[in-house]
Amino acid sequence: MIEISSLHKKIGYKTILKGINLKIPEGKLICLIGPNGAGKSSLLSLIAQLEKVEKGVIELDNRDIRSYRLAEFSMKLAYLQQHNHLDLKLTVAELVAYGRFPYSKGRLTANDHQIIEQTIGELNLKSLRNSFIDELSGGERQRVFLAMILAQDTPYILLDEPLNNLDMKHAVEIMQHCKNLVCTQGKTILIVVHDINFAANYADYIVGMKDGNLAFMLPTSQAIQADVLGKLFNIDFQIITSGVTVMCNYYFGKSRL
């Protein structure tokens, strides 16, 4: 469980997070939504210890994250950042192999190789296995980095807009893969998504953020409501259900609904 209490963050004179209190349950897929500048990415990078926690506490499995050794922490939690550019002569397989670094420290065991191959297979990267990452398209590179994070094989995974640059087919595949990891292996995955419909259809819980504050944390069925979303994004929503699928229609803005 990740437990965040009265977390503040300032960059310069601007307050990015204004006292966040949040409990993230184990073994669930949680989507983080909210308008631009809500502080979603900042929250994620604080949990991932990329930035120092200055005010407030973040606990991972009932231990302050600052008390973990980095090497230990990297076996607990993995993080995918938003922009991934690398001008390096690295093959896909080599990059994914870096995901095993916390365990192997550079000397891969048979078990490591097996996990690497398995991840490459699960993300349909087999055909790209030996391509150089600086020759891939944006979407392919995104999937390769995701593969590296997943090869890290941690109980907690934070993904900052993993669907960026992806076409529909791959976006769906990735969300299904995440859902699968949660259901079969009991991993906890926290995803920032911009496409509200992915959150509506895949998440167990939805966390809404706005202006550095926590707006709500609700089970998906309660969060995907016209009034809740409308308040969060300042735009009118219409929720359409068809079978098991939920669609949030916001394409007409304020006036027409």
Binding site: L50, A71, F101
Partner: peptide
């Protein structure tokens, strides 16, 4: 020396993989 290759990945990923 063994961390050098991870430095290539940039600060965020290097830290994520347990490298200070």
């Amino acid at each position: 020396f063994k961390y050098l290759d991870l430095i290539n990945l940039g600060r965020n990923y290097a830290r994520g993989l347990g490298v200070n």
